[in-house]
């Protein structure tokens, strides 16, 4: 069975809430805590959606998103960005990194 959601988030408390809410809604969940692990897990688990934190160790959310958009296999993957900043500047950076929705 294909995975529904991959969560890339390094804060355990936030991950805990996300995991609870999404599982409760009936989704299958896997999680990683850094950018590199996120890219590796994407290839292996092929999730339908990625929930991506911007401030991640090893590789930032920006870098991960860029990689995803550059790769033929993951180009169309829906990515939900988690950011505590919620600033216009962050949004602009995300757009240039390949975020499509808002």
């Amino acid at each position: 069975m294909a995975l529904d959601v991959l969560i890339a988030e390094d804060e355990p408390s936030i991950l805990e809430s996300l995991d609870f809410i999404l599982k409760r809604a009936g989704w299958s969940i896997a999680s990683v805590t850094d950018g590199e692990a996120a890219l590796a897990a994407l290839k292996r688990l092929k999730p339908r959606v990625l929930v991506l934190d911007v401030m991640l160790p090893k590789r930032s959310g920006f870098e991960v998103l860029k990689q995803i958009r550059a790769d033929e296999l993951t180009r169309d993957l829906p990515v939900l960005i988690l950011t505590a900043k919620g600033r216009r500047r962050t949004a602009a950076r995300l757009k240039s990194s390949g975020q499509t929705g808002s």
Binding site: E11, S13, I14, E16, S17, L18, I21, A84
Partner: peptide, 8 residues
């Protein structure tokens, strides 16, 4: 981050 975790 702390506020987000507490809030959620």
């Amino acid at each position: 981050s702390g506020i987000t975790a507490v809030r959620s």
